[in-house]
Simulated scan of single mutants.
Amino acid sequence: MGFGMMNYSAMQAPLMLWQQMARMAWESQMVIALRTAGMMGLLRQDAAEPQRMVIEKADAASEALHAALRAAGRGERADRVMAAALRPYRRRTRANVRRLSGKD
Rank of each mutant, 00 (worst) to 15 (best):
M1P: 10
M1Y: 13
G2F: 10
G2N: 09
G4P: 02
M5G: 07
M5S: 15
M6F: 01
N7Y: 06
Y8K: 10
Y8D: 12
A10W: 11
A10R: 15
A10E: 15
A10V: 12
M11G: 01
M11Y: 13
A13G: 00
P14W: 08
L15I: 10
L15H: 09
L15W: 02
M16K: 08
L17Y: 06
Q19N: 11
Q19L: 07
Q20G: 09
Q20T: 03
Q20N: 06
M21R: 12
A22R: 13
A22D: 10
R23T: 13
R23A: 11
A25M: 12
W26T: 15
W26S: 10
E27M: 07
S28V: 05
S28I: 03
Q29R: 12
M30E: 13
M30T: 09
V31P: 00
V31D: 03
L34A: 14
R35D: 08
R35L: 14
T36F: 11
T36I: 08
A37W: 02
M40S: 10
M40A: 12
L42R: 02
L42E: 08
L42K: 05
L43C: 09
L43G: 02
A47Y: 01
A47Q: 09
A47N: 05
A48Y: 09
A48N: 03
A48V: 09
A48K: 12
P50E: 06
P50Q: 04
P50R: 05
R52K: 14
R52H: 15
M53H: 12
V54E: 13
I55A: 06
I55G: 01
E56H: 04
E56G: 07
K57V: 01
A58E: 08
A58I: 07
D59N: 04
D59P: 03
A60D: 03
E63K: 12
A64D: 05
L65N: 14
L65M: 15
H66L: 07
H66T: 02
H66A: 08
A68E: 06
A68M: 10
R70D: 02
A71N: 07
A72I: 02
G73F: 06
R74M: 04
G75L: 01
G75S: 06
E76P: 01
E76D: 15
R77L: 00
R77S: 03
R77N: 11
R77P: 04
D79S: 11
M82P: 04
M82Q: 00
M82A: 01
A83M: 13
A83F: 00
A84Y: 06
A84P: 05
A85Y: 02
L86Y: 02
L86E: 03
L86Q: 06
R87F: 02
R87K: 11
P88R: 06
Y89L: 13
Y89P: 02
Y89C: 09
R90P: 09
R91E: 12
R91P: 04
R92Y: 03
N96D: 06
N96L: 08
V97M: 02
R98N: 14
R99N: 00
R99P: 09
L100M: 00
G102E: 01
G102C: 02
K103I: 13
K103V: 00
K103W: 12
K103S: 15
K103G: 15
D104P: 08
D104T: 05
